[in-house]
């Protein structure tokens, strides 16, 4: 399946991917409104990890055999027919069992009061995920690589 891959050698640590992930999953999908008028906007599903010059954006791998789905105690997580691993946020109770087993550390949490996870949904419905299309340096790509 098509997945998002990071290219650490070109990531400039700008975090535009995080910002646009939030915009893409907001109510208005307008960057200024999202940040100025939606205090309950979602947390980014992609995280930029950074240490000195090394940085890259990372999000769910949509594993062929997702540990998180197996582990989820509520059935909130599932893998759909296209292979996308999705979270039904209404069901999630924030027990962090999935976080405890995700072998990539790819699951994020909502900030503040909301005790729920947020995870990449490949921007279901969009031709290209928001983080990918808004990266200024092609440091994340969305492509089919197959098993290496």
């Amino acid at each position: 399946m098509k997945r998002i891959y990071a290219r650490e050698e070109y990531c400039v640590g700008c975090r535009l991917c995080e910002i646009f992930c939030v915009v893409g999953h907001s109510k208005s999908k307008d960057i200024i409104k999202t940040y100025k008028k939606e205090p309950d906007r979602p947390a980014p599903r992609v995280a930029v990890w950074e240490d000195g010059p090394l940085s890259f954006a990372f999000q769910c791998r949509h594993c062929d055999q997702p540990s998180c789905v197996e582990a989820c105690i509520t059935g909130a997580l599932s893998k759909n027919e296209e292979g996308t691993v999705l979270c039904n946020e209404d069901k999630c109770v924030g027990c962090w069992t999935c976080i405890t087993v995700c072998p990539f550390g790819a699951i994020q949490r909502e900030e503040g009061e909301k005790k729920k996870i947020v995870k990449c949904n490949l921007c279901s419905g969009e031709p290209e995920p928001y983080c990918v299309s808004h990266c200024p340096n092609r440091a994340i790509v969305y492509e089919e690589r197959g098993v290496e």
Binding site: M1, R3, Y5, A6, E8, F56, F58, R61, H62, C63, D64, Q65, P66, S67, E70, A71, V101, P103, F104, R145, G146, V147, E148
Partner: peptide
């Protein structure tokens, strides 16, 4: 290697 991950069979046995 990890960053490429996902497509290789992630064995489910973490539990």
């Amino acid at each position: 290697d990890r960053m490429r991950g996902g497509e290789t069979i992630e064995s489910p046995g973490c539990a």
